[in-house]
Design a protein around this nucleic acid. Structure first.
Length: 916
RNA sequence: GGGCGUGUAGCUCAGCGGUAGAGCGCUCGCCUUACAAGCGAGUGGUCGGGGGUUCGAUCCCCUCCGCGCCCACCA
């Protein structure tokens, strides 16, 4: 009997239990760092550096983060196992605007606000807040199994980062790439700051298009009776800032008014009627009011015509002192009053519903008001040129490639980047102004000593109140985290990164900025490859959001099904750049796979022959003792390793898990283990044979664990611990060797051919029995027509065939005559490509003579015949096609020929059987 | 207004020039001592419509339709 002693693993798979302590073991072994004590990196191997988007410190991670971390961990673990020093640097982003929006909401609940606290207390409060979210995030990352190098944890507002920000800005300023200018900026009155163009979300809105009459005035400013111009607007409140009325130069309707002046209502400003081709004559009345300080189009028009730019809003979103009687009113209230007042004087002519697009704040959803502001800008054109050069030359690749198109477009059309933010949480802009308006920029943390233009002392200067756009510091991430601006060893070793892994949603926000700044400051692109993943949606394809309540909380999922299953679910069946739907079904299915693997391993470890000691070192099975099943297992495992390897090289992680899922479940478990069971349990066999079988299974489990480790790190590590190792193996799977050429070399075509025949036979017998509705448990005689190769293959695995097909006695007839004689009495027919057999011949009284079963069997055979004939016809017509024969590659023609022969043979056998 | 993606079995998705795949679901049968989170056997698809290229198209090209996303200064 096979020893069933010492179950190496607990009976049931409990993810919580399995995960316990494993992360700590990795930490203790110091394997995460590229130069950690436990690292088994090959000397001289090229480092593998993956760059992650540092999560915002605004709260707990969601399942989208889990996906990112999963992909990055897969890459890092795979690279680590191939012997490369790996660096995956953990980080957190201070996320200035996002963090302020979150904190403001919290404060609001406490009856406090930004203004009630003041800058210093607000920042204190923020630091306390992020200290807790930071811990939460780090805990979550560990539970996910992320093998991050904690020794290098960075925060985008830590001192290293601050220094990098100051230095970067000062250098950009020196290089003429940072400048301060008054320009139209996107103002969010909710966030009380400007935002970049990228943060403005165009949002459809049902509005109104009003027609308003402006009266013409003569040279001394008095209204000319009967002369007017009607304009159309969706924003009547902005008329307070009008500085012209524009018409299209070719529009005959208003041409007589060109050069005239009109009176802006309420503010009584006299403004010209000008001609400009931005006006669409067909829209509205064909005349438009120009408000250069509050509209991008009008701003451009104002520039062209040198019009005054009159700001009429204040920071809080109210009408300012330029708004005459309306000063102090909210924009909405001002609109109501202005409309009413226009109506009262008879100058409001029409109001029609109008569908339009308005800009809303990405963070707060408030309406974005374009306003004139003096801000710092980065001149992006020259930087973008270099970024484009990097992708065009192939120095940096983007995956999937289709994103190159939007990348090209955005960088080609790029506009200057407003980096000033009127926020508090972030990096203060290191610019000082003197009373004469001179600008001094310095990277010195203490600030300048004097105005660099006029020499006024620091006491007379004041620092810019604004901070940088949060993406300015993120844009420096690939090198600021490695000690830049110092020329550090880290920088020399780990810049540029190998792969930047992130979501396609921040390709402009982050990827493009890192690329531009990286090339500018480091002289070369910050990464070799950009891998973009898709968004994680809910089971019905909806975007996950807290308000919709359809979010999958990664921690809950981990508690429920384990980190390994969550990770597998997130990767299996996905492809780069494409969104995925994460359903409970998918999670369950991954959990089931984890359970399957667990049980397979448990089975193998539990069937160790008594002749092998529990603490035996793993050894390769002795080739002389291998049967076809063992050779098949080794061959299939080799094929798996090759396929997974290729998928990893292609970043096709979803493909890798698909291959592994099938390899473990459908091949190893369904056939490998089932075939091996028979030998393991057969004490009539020599001990050496059973040992070889067992070592084969151990080897298969070992290879599969290695291949699965990047995807399911806890489970594989836990099982591997209980698995016999070789003297060359390390303590932990995380640093074990990735299966290499020696595994691939175990491919064995002959064994695969033989076992395929056996599998076909077993399947055929099972199918025949099942279709005929026979009791699965009863043993039935099987008569096989076996010419040489088939007979040998089946004979070699006779006990397994008997057991798996419930076939007993199993007779193999070398000649057709003998076969026909033995099966003359009938039974169920098995007729496949390579095998022909009869199940349950009536002779001997143990077989099938039930008329119902026989009828069902006949029915099945007829179905099989019909489909075989269809296929045969298709094959024949192809072979009859002159062009196919002459133009198709010889291998394809050859394949078609043998296919035709097979089908013809099958059809003949089926006809024989049915015709008799 | 540009650009991109996507449409494959009831559902979620792989595949992308040479015999249509997986998971879940469904049907039938099994507690066959690794696993009922399981086992065995099935069912199910003119690969969105129409053209074209090719010996051959789910795969390449054109076009139309549906869905989604990104970019864009239009009152």
């Amino acid at each position: 009997m096979t020893a069933m002693t010492e179950p190496g693993l607990p009976r049931t798979y409990d993810p919580g239990l399995v995960e316990t302590g494993i992360y700590e073991r990795w930490l203790a072994a110091d394997v995460f760092a590229p130069d950690g004590a436990g690292s088994r990196a090959r000397p001289g191997a090229k480092p593998f550096v993956v760059i992650q988007p540092p999560p915002n410190v605004t709260g707990a991670l969601h399942v989208g983060h889990a996906f990112t971390f999963d992909l990055e961990d897969v890459m890092v673990r795979h690279a680590r196992m191939t012997g490369r020093p790996t660096l995956w640097l953990p980080g957190l982003d201070h996320a200035s605007i996002a963090a302020q929006v979150v904190l403001d909401r919290i404060l609001d609940g406490e009856g406090e606000s930004r203004t009630s606290l003041g800058r210093e207390r607000y920042l204190e409060r923020m630091r306390a807040f992020v200290a807790t979210t930071r811990e939460t995030i780090i805990r979550q990352e560990r539970r996910l199994g992320s093998s991050l190098e904690w020794g290098r944890l960075r925060f985008t507002v830590d001192e290293t980062s601050s220094r990098a920000v100051r230095t970067a800005f000062a250098r950009l300023y020196q290089d003429g790439l940072a400048y301060r200018s008054e320009a139209l900026a996107n103002w969010c009155s909710g966030c009380q700051t400007t935002v970049s163009d990228l943060e403005v979300v165009p949002t459809p809105e049902s509005g109104t298009l009003w027609t308003i009459r402006y009266h013409v005035v003569d040279a001394d400013g008095s209204v000319v009776p009967g002369r007017w111009i009607d304009i159309a607007t969706t924003r009547p409140e902005t008329l307070l800032g009008d500085s012209a009325i524009a018409i299209h130069p070719d529009d005959p309707r208003h041409r007589d008014l060109l050069g005239d002046h009109v009176l802006v209502p309420f503010v009584d400003r006299v403004v010209p009627v000008i001609a400009d081709s931005v006006v669409r004559p067909e829209f509205g009345t064909g005349a438009v009011k120009i408000t250069p300080a509050h509209d991008a189009d009008d701003y451009a028009t104002g520039k062209r015509h040198d019009l005054p730019m009159i700001n009429v809003f204040d920071d809080a979103g109210r009408i300012n002192e330029n708004g005459a009687a309306y000063a102090g009113l909210s924009l909405a209230e001002a609109r109501r009053r202005i409309l009413a007042d226009l109506d009262a004087r008879g100058d409001l002519l029409a109001a029609v519903p109008h569908e339009m697009i308005i800009g809303r704040c990405q963070r707060s959803n408030d309406i974005i008001e374009p306003r004139l502001k003096t801000q710092w800008f980065i001149r992006t054109k020259p930087l973008a040129e270099e970024a484009l050069q990097a992708t065009r030359s192939g120095v940096t690749g983007i995956l999937p490639e289709r994103f190159i198109k939007v990348w090209e477009h955005w960088l080609t059309e790029i506009r200057d980047w407003n980096v000033s933010r009127q926020l508090w949480w972030g990096h203060r802009i290191p610019a000082w102004y003197c009373p004469d308006g001179h600008v001094t920029v310095t990277d010195d943390p203490a600030g300048p000593t004097a105005c660099e233009v006029c020499g006024r002392p620091i006491a007379e200067l004041h620092q810019d109140n604004d901070i940088f756009d949060t993406w300015f510091s993120s844009g420096l991430w690939p090198f600021s985290t490695l000690g830049w601006p110092d020329d550090t060893a880290d920088l020399r070793t780990y810049y540029p990164g190998s792969v930047l892994e992130t979501g396609y949603d921040i390709i402009f926000f982050w990827v493009a900025r890192m690329m531009m700044l990286g090339i500018h400051f480091m002289g070369r692109p910050p990464f070799e490859m950009v891998y973009l993943h898709g968004m994680v949606r809910d089971g019905t394809g909806q975007k996950m959001s807290k308000t919709k309540g359809n979010v999958v909380d990664p921690l809950e999922a981990i508690d429920d099904i384990g980190a390994d299953a969550l990770r597998l679910a997130l990767i299996n069946g996905t492809s780069p750049g494409n969104d995925q739907r994460l359903s409970q079904d998918k999670l369950d299915s991954a959990r089931n796979f984890a359970n399957k693997l667990w049980n397979a391993a448990r089975f193998v470890l539990g069937t160790r022959p008594a002749t092998i000691p529990a603490d035996a070192l793993r050894q390769a099975p002795n080739p002389a003792d291998l049967g076809p099943a063992e050779r098949w297992i080794r061959s299939r495992t080799a094929a798996t390793a090759v396929a997974v390897d290729r998928a990893m090289a292609d970043f096709a992680f979803g493909e890798a898990t698909r291959v592994l899922y099938e390899a473990v479940w459908s091949e190893l478990c369904d056939w490998g283990l089932e075939l091996a069971k028979v030998r393991l349990a057969d004490d009539s066999l020599p001990g050496a044979v059973r040992e070889a079988t067992w070592w084969t299974l151990v080897e298969a489990i070992d290879v599969n664990l290695r291949l699965l480790h990047p995807f399911m790190p806890f489970l594989t590590e836990a099982i591997w611990t209980a698995t016999p190792h070789t003297p060359d193996d390390p303590e932990l799977l995380i640093v074990a060797d990735w299966p290499g050429p020696e595994v691939a070399a175990r491919r064995d075509e002959a064994a695969e051919v033989d076992v395929d025949v056996v599998i076909e036979l077993i399947r055929g017998v099972r199918n025949a029995r099942s279709e005929a509705r026979l009791e699965p448990a009863t043993w039935l005689p099987v008569d096989l027509l076996g010419d040489a190769p088939v007979a040998l293959a089946v004979e070699a695995l006779r006990p397994a065939v008997e057991r798996l097909a419930r076939a007993r006695p199993l007779a193999i007839h070398p000649t057709r005559a003998a076969y026909l004689a033995a099966t003359a009495a009938g039974g169920l027919s098995v007729i496949g490509n390579g095998v022909e057999a009869v199940v349950g011949r009536a002779a001997g009284g143990s077989g099938v003579d039930d008329a119902h079963a026989a009828a069902l069997d006949r029915e099945r055979l007829n179905r099989e015949l019909a489909s075989a004939r269809t296929l045969l016809e298709a094959a024949r017509s192809r072979l009859a096609n002159e062009s196919f024969m002459s133009k198709a590659p010889p291998a394809v023609v050859e394949g078609a020929r043998s296919r035709e022969l097979e089908l013809a043979e099958q059809v003949r056998r089926l006809e024989d059987r049915l015709g008799s």
